[in-house]
């Protein structure tokens, strides 16, 4: 199912995502669970490149890789990240397969950000903050929405402009029967 070339592509995109998450640490974070979601960029782009099994393997790799490098594998951060990433990947994959060409990466990214943030808000209220946080935490979905739009615009531009990405897509196309 996974040829060497496919595995290399997954590893490369995963590494790309890990790199972007190190860049993201340069930005300040208002509250622990709110991120810009830069690391999500390769996962969005990968919709164009990878078939379903490889795509979800990439998501797993991304989450595992971050957990190992940051050292959060044995903590609640890993569980939150895993749940949020898989839920949003599934939604984005469904949007991409079902709604194209009437949707761009902007809509896909917004849906992904919404899913991931909702999952993390519900989990953090249940396990950490307690029911009182229902009054405040949902407001952060708004921030998530804005960053989702931003990442989506970025992904669309990268996909349109990058020569490297164009070459990657061309190569992947050649291979598939």
């Amino acid at each position: 199912m996974f040829t060497e070339k496919k595995l290399n592509r997954i590893a490369l995109l995963g590494a790309f995502s890990m790199f972007l998450s190190t860049i993201e640490y340069l930005f300040p974070r208002p509250i622990p669970f709110m991120r810009l979601g830069l690391a999500n960029l390769p996962v969005i782009l990968a919709l164009e490149l990878l078939p379903a099994p490889s795509y979800f393997l990439l998501v797993l790799m991304k989450v595992l890789g971050q957990a190992l490098v940051n050292g959060t594998l044995a903590s609640y951060v890993f569980l939150f990240s895993l749940t949020g990433s898989f839920a949003s990947a599934l939604v984005m994959w469904l949007c991409y397969r079902g709604l194209r060409p009437r949707i761009t990466f902007i809509g896909i990214s917004v849906m992904g950000a919404l899913t991931s943030n909702m999952a993390q808000i519900v989990l953090s209220i249940t396990f950490i903050f307690g029911a009182s946080a229902w009054r405040i935490l949902p407001l952060f979905l708004g921030i998530g929405l804005v960053s989702g739009v931003f990442i989506g615009i970025f992904a669309q531009r990268f996909s349109d402009k990058s020569r490297w990405w164009a070459a990657m897509k061309k190569e992947a196309l050649h291979e598939s029967p």
Binding site: R102, I103, G107, A113, L114, G148
Partner: peptide, 12 residues
């Protein structure tokens, strides 16, 4: 923006 982008935005 395409039609489902707008729908996604409104939905969110």
């Amino acid at each position: 923006l395409r039609i489902f982008d707008v729908i996604a935005l409104i939905f969110s």
